[in-house]
Structures are given as structure tokens and as C-alpha cells.
Simulated scan of single mutants.
Amino acid sequence: MPSPRKASARSGNQRLYFISFNFLDIQALEALEQFIMTYEGTIIFVTHDKNFIANVADLQFTIESNKIF
């Protein structure tokens, strides 16, 4: 299994990840969700996986037609 591509920026308790979910099996995805839900800092992630967003996001921004909602 190829490792997910990740761009990471760290500063204090903030994390920014770009992860391809295509290569994660259900157990890995559930483990990632648990990590994010218990992490005490800020995590910014980019995904089109609506179930993942619903499970872990406290705040959501949507970019559509060059506008942020």
C-alpha cells in the first residue's frame, strides 16, 4: 500500500494535512478519525469525504466557484 501523500506544517498545536483517503482501509480511517477527535490542538484537513467531515469536523469551510463559505 503506498503511503499517503502528506504536506505537513507544524506550529505549536496546529497541524495541516493533505491526505489521500483512497489508500486507507476502514480500520486505518477509523484510527485517523479517533486521533483527530482526541487531538487537543487544531487540525486543518482538506477532503471531499463527507462522512469523514461529519465525523470529525467542528468547523467547516467550503470553497466553491472561488468563494469560501
Rank of each mutant, 00 (worst) to 15 (best):
A57G: 00
F52G: 04
D49Q: 13
G41F: 01
Q27L: 15
K67S: 01
D58C: 09
I26H: 12
V46L: 07
A54S: 09
Q60P: 03
I19E: 00
E64M: 09
N66K: 13
Y39V: 06
I63C: 01
I68H: 09
M1N: 08
K6P: 00
T38Q: 09
A57Y: 03
F61Q: 09
V56M: 03
E40G: 07
I68W: 07
M1Q: 08
Q34W: 12
A28N: 15
A9E: 02
N22I: 11
G41Q: 10
L24D: 01
F45W: 04
A54I: 08
D25G: 12
F21G: 02
K50D: 03
N13V: 05
K67V: 03
F52P: 03
Q14M: 04
D25V: 13
G12M: 13
A7G: 08
A31V: 12
S65T: 10
Q27V: 14
M1Y: 07
D25R: 15
N22C: 09
A7D: 08
R15I: 03
F69Q: 09
Q14G: 01
T62A: 03
N51P: 05
I63G: 00
V46S: 03
F35A: 07
T42W: 13
T62V: 09
I44G: 02
L29G: 05
I68D: 01
A31F: 10
L24V: 08
F61P: 00
F69N: 08
I63M: 08
V46I: 12
I53K: 13
S65F: 05
M37L: 14
L16I: 10
T47V: 04
N13R: 14
F45K: 07
E64C: 07
L16K: 11
S20A: 09
A54L: 10
L24K: 14
A7V: 12
S65E: 05
S3P: 05
F69I: 10
A31R: 15
I44P: 00
K67I: 05
I36E: 01
T62E: 02
F61L: 11
S8P: 02
M1K: 12
F35W: 14
I43Q: 08
I43S: 04
I53T: 06
E40W: 09
I43T: 10
T38S: 04
M1P: 02
Q34P: 03
I19P: 00
A9Y: 03
T47I: 05
I63H: 07
R10D: 00
R15C: 02
T42M: 13
F23S: 13
S20V: 12
S11L: 08
